[in-house]
Design a protein around this nucleic acid. Structure first.
Length: 889
RNA sequence: GGGCAGUUAGCUCAGUUGGUAGAGCGCCACGCUUACACCGUGGAUGUCACAGGUUCGAGUCCUGUACUGCCCACCA
């Protein structure tokens, strides 16, 4: 279908009136939804599911920009493309947000209103907001398959979670154990190591005297940053080889304030050099101490409640909040003479990422996933190249993490999330794990007095299944068979551990092979000062606002072309404006071309663009340049160098197609010769239409809109065929470049000599073999250089060069601009001298290289050849310039 | 303590098989020519952080240094 509607296009491109309309057009035609087709390659990207609680930010714009570009590119290449969108229930974040809401609404805590009521409210909230953020991705132009949209708490993914849990439970990979864990007193749940941030703080190192029992004159000094934990001390540890304490091994100390006897133990884990070389051991509240305690069979005393207040084991401090207790403990130690000194000390404190309060290590019973059996194959997949990272260096980040990985604490003490599918029997006390969503009776004793484990799973556990739970697993669906494994996982490098590694581990575990072959990691988008954008800082640039003002294409193109994978990028406002301008530029190029089109012009086929001998130079040039571009873009897309590809298309369209080709066409378009006109229209349309196809993955909206205005095959650009490179002719390219050089020289000279008239006379002196070139391009020369046609001579010899003229020496010709009266001879001489100097400098440089036998022998032949040509050109140029200068003296 | 990145024109950044440095913005000077002032033409500006090394040749590879940033790590 050819759209021959010739209503004139507006002068400027307005994204507002097109983007929404085109998105609808694409979606309603079903082009985002792939067909399962054995004859096509499936190409799958599972979208990183945005958090339901989050607001749309530039990171989303970034991932949409990259993923949509890949996906559109592959779709145009004929792949069966699935880009699957979804959202994540964001366990702890959502729960925190809703808890605040609940407090406002019911004046009660979540525990007070209870799990059931809380979840009911949560679902209400989800139904209202779950799709808000995902739907905002439409504004960005994401061509994802909404018919397959998924939510981690949908029944499908829920069943996937229970199924894999059951499998792991049965295989002994999932187990319960009481260990010291990262307790977040703020959200009252355990969090994983990854959710703990070490924050450097100014603190104190308190030195405390612990007297030796039965020898009150002797004592051991320990140093601590957390004196309140001494209430739970069960030993003091020293290094076995530390001479200072050798005689005290096994002796007892009196724990101040608590009046409890604790032993001195010798442990290798103690650093002799640090502090006094003696460490207080609090197995209940410190991970290292917990280990020492395990090695020496020390009792574990937990002195805090889950809200980090001191419990009954803390004696007189019971009821105090932990930092109040610290103050009180220090005060009492000082009063009683146990405090030796207090020194300022900078140290790292673990903070809970979500609740932003210090972590309190606590010993608790938790569910764990034995990770080694999963991490080994996942590590192997990266080492043998089945999973590749872009940029490559992240392979090391990934492998090193997997090499040092610990078992994963997968249980969370929250309401919102996937409930642990394990029931406890009130009768026999045994556990039953099931993949069903409920349990009627204990599988051991058939009692119906069963209660489900109260915990839910870490959000990332279900996220880890995302690459196949979204495709129907555990059912053997058609989707799963066709679309797994996917192609590319595209996300920020900040979640390699949280998510990427876990998807690979769980993907291999459940499906036997990695869920994707490539991990593309984009950089983080920062504000113009380089700071991380965050709502609390108020430095966010809202993508919706940006899009409203400049269009989605402009934002996406900027993000893609001004960044490089894995490197953070500052979003620069002026670049967005530039991208908007680019959209407008191609809009107007198209507008110009359509204005000059016959109403029923048929689409331009590849055959129409064959390089024929009679074809004008500019046509041969632009077709060749386009072909080169198409080739480069393909290579760059295949190697994930999207930014570079986008930049090349930009340069071609603006600096070559618009600045030179269209300009050169204006003569022929107005010449009135119908045949000539038709020929140039074909090339204009053919090259532009193909270039729009190349650009479509980067700027989907304008390109579609423009493409619809040009003669084309097919219904829409989004499903058009990815364009092939056409013929190339190096001679034409070189000739055109020679012409460009002449034109630039004349333009330059006119400015330099401050010539006011638009058309100047000129004599072009060229070699006999180039005569034809300049003769046939006379019109181009006249128009683009601003030469007076009636006063243009093209000759291959010139008995007497005009004396009152500027002489412009280029590779293919010397151009004389007779500017009698205007020319300042003195100035002309100094200009020539300067140019001679430049040419000589170039000559010398080339000469030096070429006289170096090492260079001539070892450099590749084409490089040497190129240098020889450069030398010859520079020499010739110097000679010609010198001659001219001599004639003016 | 370990690891990784960045350091290129006044500003923001590109620059993947090592061949002698680019874009946009900004700046200067012109300019309404069958599209585009969200434009056109011309111009100026860089010891590619520093010091060595490999090489005929290094922004690009190697070593080290400095500054900035990030990640990982149980030093009380």
């Amino acid at each position: 279908m050819t759209d021959t509607n010739k209503k004139e296009m507006p002068k400027a491109y307005d994204p507002k009136t097109t983007e929404e309309r085109l998105y609808k057009f694409w979606e309603e035609n079903g082009w985002f939804t792939p067909k399962i087709d054995a004859n096509r390659n499936p190409y799958v990207i599972i979208m990183p599911p945005p958090n339901v609680t989050g607001a749309l930010h530039q990171g989303h714009a970034m991932f949409v920009g990259v993923e949509d570009a890949l996906v559109r590119w592959r779709r145009m290449n004929g792949d069966s493309v699935l880009w699957l969108p979804g959202s994540d229930h964001a366990g702890i974040s959502a729960e925190t947000v809703l808890e605040k809401q609940v407090r406002k609404e019911f004046k009660k805590s979540k525990n007070e209103i209870g799990r059931e009521a809380f979840l009911k409210r949560m679902w209400q909230w989800m139904d209202e907001y779950r799709d808000v953020i995902v739907n905002q991705l439409r504004v960005l132009g994401a061509s994802c398959d909404w018919t397959r949209k998924c939510f981690t708490m949908d029944e499908g993914p829920q069943r996937a979670v229970r199924t894999i849990f059951k499998k792991m439970y049965d295989e002994g990979l999932i187990y319960q154990a009481e260990r010291i864990v990262n307790w977040c007193p703020g959200s009252q749940t355990v969090v994983s190591d990854l959710e703990v941030n070490m924050i450097e703080e100014e603190g104190f190192l308190w030195h405390i005297r612990y007297p030796v029992k039965d020898a009150p004159e002797r004592y051991v000094i320990v140093a601590t940053t957390r004196p309140e934990t001494m209430l739970g001390d069960t030993a003091v540890a020293v290094h076995p080889e530390d001479e200072r304490y050798k005689d005290l091994h096994g002796k007892m100390l009196m724990l101040p304030l608590m009046n409890r006897e604790i032993p001195i133990v010798a442990d290798e884990g103690v650093d002799k050099e640090f502090g006094t070389g003696a460490v207080k051991v609090t197995p209940g509240h410190d991970p290292l101490d917990f280990e020492i305690g395990q090695r020496h069979n020390l009792p574990v005393i937990t002195i805090m409640n889950l809200d980090a207040t001191i419990n009954e084991n803390g004696g007189q401090y019971q009821g105090l909040e932990r930092f109040a207790a610290r103050k009180q403990v220090v005060k009492n130690l000082e009063e009683q003479g146990y405090l030796v000194k207090t020194e300022p000390y900078r140290h790292s404190v673990p903070y809970s990422e979500k609740a932003d309060v210090p972590i309190e290590p606590l010993v608790r019973m938790q569910w764990w996933l034995k990770i080694q059996p999963l991490s080994e194959p996942a590590l192997q997949a990266a080492l043998d190249g089945r999973v590749k990272f872009v940029p490559e260096r992240f392979t090391k980040v990934y492998t090193q993490w997997l090499e040092n990985i610990h078992d994963w604490n997968i249980s969370r003490q929250l309401f919102w999330g996937h409930r642990i599918p394990v029931w406890y029997c009130g009768n026999c006390g045994k556990q039953t794990c099931t993949a069903n969503d409920s349990l009627k009776a204990c599988e051991h004793c058939s009692s119906d007095k069963v209660t489900q484990d109260a915990d839910v799973l870490d959000t990332w556990f279900s996220s880890g299944l995302w690459t196949f739970s979204t495709l129907g697993w555990p059912d053997q669906t058609e989707d799963l068979a066709y679309f797994y494994p996917g192609a590319v996982m595209e996300t920020g490098y900040d979640i390699i551990f949280f998510w990427v590694a876990r998807m690979i581990m769980l993907g291999i575990y459940a499906m036997g092979e990695p869920p994707f072959h490539t991990v593309y990691l984009h950089g983080l988008v920062r504000d113009e000062k380089g700071e991380k954008m965050s709502k609390s800082k108020g430095n966010t640039i809202d993508p919706l606002e940006t899009i409203d003002k400049y269009g989605s294409d402009a934002l996406r193109f900027t993000l893609l072309t001004s960044s490089t994978p894995g490197v953070d990028t500052k979003l620069s406002f002026s670049r967005i404006v530039d991208s908007r301008n680019f959209a407008n530029k191609i809009w107007n190029a198209t507008r110009f071309i359509t204005m000059n089109l016959e109403a029923e012009m048929p689409p331009v086929q590849d055959e129409d663009l064959q390089l024929t001998p009679g074809m004008p130079l500019a046509d041969r040039w632009v077709i060749s340049r386009y072909s080169l571009l198409a080739q480069d873009v393909n290579r760059l897309m295949e190697t994930y160098q999207l930014g570079e590809a986008g930049r090349l298309i930009y340069d071609f369209l603006w600096s070559e197609f618009c600045d030179w080709y269209i300009e050169s066409c204006k003569i022929r378009l107005s010449s009135g010769n119908p045949e000539e006109k038709l020929a140039v229209q074909k090339v204009l349309v053919g090259v532009l239409e193909r270039s729009l196809r190349l650009l479509h993955p980067f700027m989907p909206f304008v390109t579609e809109e423009l493409w619809q205005n040009l003669p084309h095959f097919g219904e829409a650009l989004i499903i058009a065929e990815w364009p092939a490179a056409l013929e190339k002719d190096a001679d034409s390219v070189r000739s055109f470049e020679e012409l460009q050089e002449v034109i630039r020289a004349v333009r330059n000279a006119k400015v330099e000599a401050k010539v006011e008239s638009k058309r100047v006379p000129a004599i072009v002196l060229t070699k006999p073999e180039e005569l034809a070139l300049f003769e046939s391009e006379k019109d181009t020369l006249v128009r683009l250089a601003g030469i007076d046609a009636a006063n243009l001579q093209i000759v291959d010899q010139l008995p007497i060069a005009p004396s009152q003229a500027m002489a412009l020496v280029t590779v293919a010709a010397t151009v004389y601009l007779p500017l009698s009266g205007l020319l300042d001879l003195e100035q002309e001489r100094s200009r020539l001298s300067k140019e001679i100097e430049d040419a000589r400098r170039e000559t010398e440089k080339s000469l030096a290289m070429l006289s170096n036998s090492n260079f001539v022998d070892r450099a590749p032949a084409p490089v040497v050849e190129k240098e020889r040509e450069k030398l010859a050109a520079a020499q010739e140029r110097a000679i010609k310039l010198q001659e001219r200068l001599n004639s003016l003296l």
